[in-house]
Design a binder for these strands. Structure first.
Length: 619
DNA sequence: CATCTCACG
DNA sequence: ACGTACGTGAGATGC
């Protein structure tokens, strides 16, 4: 690394007036880029207030512009806080900064820039173009370590930044950033911008030397504004619907609870797996109970399901648990996420959350809203379109199996997809020598489980557990599968070997997923192998839908349609009723062509679409 | 704060 | 012989 100014928080500038700020704007324009960081009153960009802005133009040259820091007024008997000295008004600051923040010719560099871009957007400033050190780290090192700034600074700059905890405290007595004395805030905030700039200088050439520039430039960087926009739109959620469901669940749960106490002959905590296990295996003396590694009884659903046929107690626990899950995680918790001003729920997508290139969703997670059970699916009725609009949902059909057929070059599978065949039925037909016209649902179901297993890096044990069949039988299925599709085994062996040789696997689009555990011995080895087999398939599917999402804003421009949600292989839009047909057609075309022109797949991508006044109807 | 359980693709 | 399906986030319990 070239000689650089040491990271010294004492040297940063506190910007107090317009002249000082204009001097920074001049320096930014001379450079053509600037590292930017925002300080806010909270982590929720939709609710937090902007507290200050830090800038850095070269290592060690950083400043902080405080906006609304408050300090206890010594002469105020009521203890209310007064605005601290030496601050500019947010409107004055943004008036001066806007021209550079919105200037196409000036690159704004941030760590998790989506957060800062959303904050600025709420104050009417559209920040572009951007670079993001978190995403650079993710493109370089997915699968290796986390991409938070503290970790990156420690790892690459050998410097531990001032911790936010040291300023805010923790737990109940924690304060918000606007209560931090400005002098302390300058050191912390400007240091973050300084570190971000240094990381950027370090990562920029590495993207090239590690051959992930294309991944970063085409799959990471352009997705940031797309996700920011989706999150800010949010999706309308009907509180009354959720509230009614909560009440209904509570009533049913009370009934199950009484029944359980009756059977057990005593009261206990139904929500405690340990207490459920005590009753089943100690008190009732049932066989087959297993303990967790901490020595408590284990009572997962599949175990209870086996017992439920004989014992009402197990069946009622399952009933209770299902409703408890739906109530606490969905109908209750979702209500707290409805934004008081927009009436909508604004999730946050973590672009560097999953090692494979998938997104993750949090606060709330809208990627795991129930659908598999009838009762759970009804929760989707609470996700609604505005009056005069509909929700449309478009999802890729069998995208991972299609990608497997392509990358493993399995002619029979590729042809089946080209012919639009039922792929699970076709697999079953091949494996069990059953003509397609004689296919039964049960044979097809088994083949479907095998197809899923293949994507996950199949094992006899896993398939046996999933299908509830003896392990020997499951192993027989797998052997048979590889006999019929020998190319799949070759692909898997090659993938594992590639991981061992290179320390990573990669997707069709060049995304690297590091596999540091691939050389491990013992049980770890199995995990690492299966993860390595799965990653290029799951990752390529993730790349495809990312490409579609990146193309989408231009494609639907002019249409009265907004892209709201992504659920791994599905996109959800809110559309004026009159434009539903046209939007569906446009979106489908973008999704089905998302691989082009980067990768020409040997199989077609097929997208299914639905529509409705709510997500249950649209799905 | 770790563990268990369970919701999704 | 061993112990496993891949990838996530969240709520409740109990140390």
């Amino acid at each position: 690394m070239p000689d650089q100014a040491p990271i010294d928080p004492e040297t940063y500038e506190w910007v107090k007036d317009a002249d000082a700020l204009r001097a920074w704007v001049t320096r930014i324009r001379e450079r053509g880029y600037v590292a930017v960081d925002t300080e806010t009153t909270g982590l929720d960009e939709m609710r937090a207030d902007l507290v200050g802005i830090s800038l850095c133009v070269e290592p060690g040259q950083a400043c902080y512009i405080p906006l609304i820091h408050r300090e206890a007024a010594t002469d105020d008997l009521f203890g209310s806080d007064a605005l601290a000295e030496g601050q500019m008004g947010v409107n004055d600051v943004l008036a001066i900064l806007r021209p550079v923040l919105e200037d196409d010719a000036i690159l704004k560099i941030g760590q998790n820039m989506k957060y800062d871009a959303k904050m600025f957007a709420r104050y009417g400033v559209s920040v572009a173009p951007i670079d993001d050190t978190m995403l650079m780290s993710y493109a370089l090192n997915a699968g290796v370590h986390n991409h938070g700034m503290d970790a990156l600074s420690d790892r690459y700059l050998n410097h531990k930044p001032i911790s936010i905890k040291s300023l805010l405290g923790t737990g109940k007595s924690a304060i918000t950033f606007d209560k931090v004395p400005v002098g302390e805030a300058v050191k912390y905030a400007a240091e973050d911008a300084d570190i971000t700039l240094r990381l950027w200088q370090l990562f920029k050439p590495r993207l090239h030397s590690e051959k992930v520039t294309t991944v970063y430039e085409t799959l990471e960087r352009p997705l940031v504004p797309v996700l920011a926009q989706m999150e800010m739109y949010g999706i309308k959620v009907d509180r009354d619907t959720l509230s009614r469901m909560s009440n209904s669940f509570a009533q049913k749960m009370a009934g199950y609870e009484a029944e359980l106490y009756e059977i057990a002959g005593r009261e206990f905590n139904v929500q405690s797996p340990a207490q459920v296990g005590e009753i089943l295996f100690d008190q009732m003396g049932l066989e087959g109970g297993k303990r967790t590694k901490t020595g408590q009884w284990s009572t997962p659903a599949d175990v209870l399901e086996d017992l439920a046929a004989e014992h009402d107690f197990a069946a009622r626990v399952l009933d209770y648990r299902q409703l408890q899950k739906l109530k606490s995680t969905y109908t209750d918790a979702l209500q707290t996420h409805i934004h008081p001003e927009t009436g909508r729920v604004h999730t946050s997508y973590l672009q560097s959350g999953a090692t494979t290139g998938r997104l993750a969703s949090s606060d709330p997670n809208l990627q795991n809203i129930p659908v598999r059970s009838e009762e759970g699916r009804r929760i989707r009725e609470a996700f609604v379109a505005e009056p005069g609009k509909l929700l449309i949902s478009l999802d890729y059909s069998q995208i991972e199996l299609r990608i497997l057929a392509h990358v493993a070059e399995i002619d029979a599978l590729k042809q089946a997809f080209r012919d639009g065949q039922d792929i699970h039925a076709m697999t079953a037909s091949e494996m069990f020598d059953v003509p397609m016209e004689d296919m039964t649902p049960d044979i097809r179901r088994q083949a479907k489980a095998i197809n899923f297993g293949v994507i996950y890096g199949i094992s006899g044990f896993g398939l046996a557990r999933n299908l509830r069949i003896p392990r020997s039988e499951a192993q027989g299925f797998i052997d048979r599968y590889f006999e019929r599709f020998p190319g799949i085994r070759t692909y898997m062996d090659n993938t594992v070997q590639f991981a061992k040789d290179n320390g990573h696997v990669q997707t069709l689009f060049g995304r690297k997923i590091h596999t540091p555990e691939i050389g491990a011995k013992g049980p770890q080895a199995g995990f690492a192998k299966r993860a390595a087999i799965n990653a290029p398939i799951q990752g390529a599917a993730a790349d495809v839908i990312r490409r579609a999402m990146i193309k989408m804003p231009a494609a639907i421009e002019g249409l009265p349609a907004k892209m709201l949600l992504q659920v791994h292989d599905e996109l959800i839009f809110e559309v004026d009723e009159a434009a539903v047909d046209e939007t569906t057609s446009v979106v489908r075309d973008v999704m089905e062509g998302a691989s082009d022109p980067a990768v020409k797949l040997d199989v077609p991508l097929v997208v299914d679409a639905g529509r409705g006044h709510n997500w249950a109807e649209a799905h």
